Amino acid sequence: MEETIAAAEDSQIAGQIPQQRGDSPQETAVRYAEERHWDVFPGTWLEAVGGIPRCSCGEASCPAPGAHPTRPDWANQATGSATVVRRLWQKQPMASVLLPTGRTFDALCVPETAGFLALARLERMSLTLGPVALSPDRRMQFFVLPGGAVKVPELVRKSGWVPASLDLVALGAGAYVAAPPTRFGARGAVQWARRPTPANRWLPDVEELVSALAYACGRDR
C-alpha cells in the first residue's frame, strides 16, 4: 500500500512552479506587509563584478549571495509598516526581501524533492496548507503557525523517525527566510510553490504537516 501511495506521489513531483509576478522588491515587500501583515526587512543584493553577480557584502565566497541580512541587528529592523518598508527600499531598491520567522509564522525547511513529495501527499489528504516557498538552493519552506518550530523534534520522534537522521529544519524565533523576488547569485530567484492567497491566510499547525514532511525526508535520504 505504501509503495502504491509513493508511486502516485512521485508522479506529481515534477509539476511546474508558478511564474512570479514582475513586481519590484519594494512593491512586493509592501504587499507582504499590507496584505499578509508580515514583518519584512531588506537584505543584501547582487552587483555585477566583471559580468558575474556578486553579493553586496563583498565576500567572494558568500554562501547566500544577495539573500542575507546586512546588519547583525536585522531583527530590530524588521517591520510590518508599509510606510517604513517603502523608506527602507528607497535606500536600496534592489535589496533582497527577507521575512523573520517566529513572529507571524514559523517555517519548516526541507529539500526540494522531499518538499514536492510532501505537497502531493498533503494535498491528496485535503489538509490546509499555507504559503510554500522554493529557493534556488533547492530547499522548500512550509509556513506554519508561529511557535511550532520548538515542537518539531518531539513530533518527529512520535512519527517514528530520529530527528538527526532527517534533513528537516525548523525555523522559529531568531531565523528568517528569503521571499520572492529575492535572487540567490546566479542560481535564480526564490519562487512560490504555493503562493500567498486569501485562501491560505490561516496557517496550519505544525502538527498537521510534520508527519508528511518527515516521511518525505526519510524517502529522500
Rank of each mutant, 00 (worst) to 15 (best):
G50P: 01
D10I: 08
R103C: 11
L98M: 11
I17H: 14
R21M: 14
H68W: 02
F143T: 08
R87S: 11
A114C: 02
R21P: 11
G15I: 13
A199Q: 02
A212T: 14
T4L: 06
Q191W: 09
V169E: 09
P198M: 05
A78L: 05
M1W: 04
G218N: 01
D167G: 13
C109D: 13
T44F: 15
E123W: 07
D137H: 07
D73R: 03
V150P: 10
G66A: 07
L129Q: 01
V190H: 11
S165W: 10
V110G: 00
A179I: 07
R195N: 09
I13Y: 03
G22Y: 04
R139H: 13
M125P: 14
A170C: 15
R36E: 15
Y32L: 01
V97T: 04
I17G: 12
Q141H: 15
G172N: 05
D205Q: 10
L213N: 05
D73N: 06
L119A: 05
R31C: 04
A120F: 10
L134C: 01
P181Y: 12
L155R: 13
V30Y: 03
T83C: 12
R138V: 12
A114E: 01
A186G: 13
A114L: 02
N76G: 06
A78M: 05
G80Q: 13
T4M: 08
C109N: 15
F105V: 14
G51Y: 06
G172A: 00
E47K: 09
A133V: 15
C62E: 02
D23Q: 08
E9L: 06
I52Y: 11
P204Q: 09
S211N: 11
R71Y: 13
T182D: 15
A6F: 09
R219A: 00
P100Q: 06
R54I: 00
Q92K: 01
L171Y: 06
E123H: 12
L145D: 07
R183N: 11
T4C: 08
A14Y: 01
K91S: 05
G50Y: 04
S211I: 09
R195A: 02
A164L: 06
D39A: 12
V49H: 11
L117V: 13
A95V: 09
V49G: 00
G43N: 02
G66N: 01
E2D: 14
T83E: 12
I13S: 09
S159A: 11
